[in-house]
Amino acid sequence: MRKAFGPLVVVGAALFVAAPYFIAQAPYESTMGLIQKIMYYHVPSWIAQYCAITVCGVASAIYLFKSHPVADRYAVSAAELVVLFGLMGLITGPLWARKAWGVWWQWDVRLTSALLMELIFVAYLLVRQYGGPGSEKLASATALFGTATGPFVYKSVDIWRTVHPKTTVVPTLPSSLGAPLALTSAAFVLLFVVLLTLRVNLAERQAALDEMYLALED
């Protein structure tokens, strides 16, 4: 990943530069108008978050069973990004909803399950912060449970929702809207990869520092 980092940054940045043009070009969605353009940042942030959740879950499982320190570095880096992208989605969502639905918050399945995921990964970071020595293992169990139950969370909230009155549903998108969305999605995924690489690099430097302290004691 390290070697590909430079090109990744360039491609990602190019996508982000191109994005505004395509977003502006895209026609207005018929019922919501301008506000619908939040979608071009909102949906990709969820896609990036799902990537982060997957990385964190897999890395945590590897760390839990193999105790490989590299896996832990990926897990903690991905967990921070889950929280970051989740926050982006959770802020842009209500802004969209306020205009489109007339309320800030709806107990919609996506909103609710996203909020739960955000809570789980904030809990992950809290455990690492305050759990004392050995908390990496405990945190990895949290991530594992969070990731594994994700689909169930979604399903159960979905059913919970359908028992209640339905809200406005985003209609299926024509391709004129889809193309810019694909572009920003790719840009966000690249942003995720770039941030993950930077954060893992930080974790490696921290580990190297710890190593130096240990060597000093030896």
Binding site: I35, I38, Y41, M88, L95, W96
Partner: peptide, 11 residues
């Protein structure tokens, strides 16, 4: 517009 700008800016 303000909502849209706020959303993009926040990201």
């Amino acid at each position: 517009a303000p909502f849209l700008i706020a959303a993009y800016a926040f990201v």
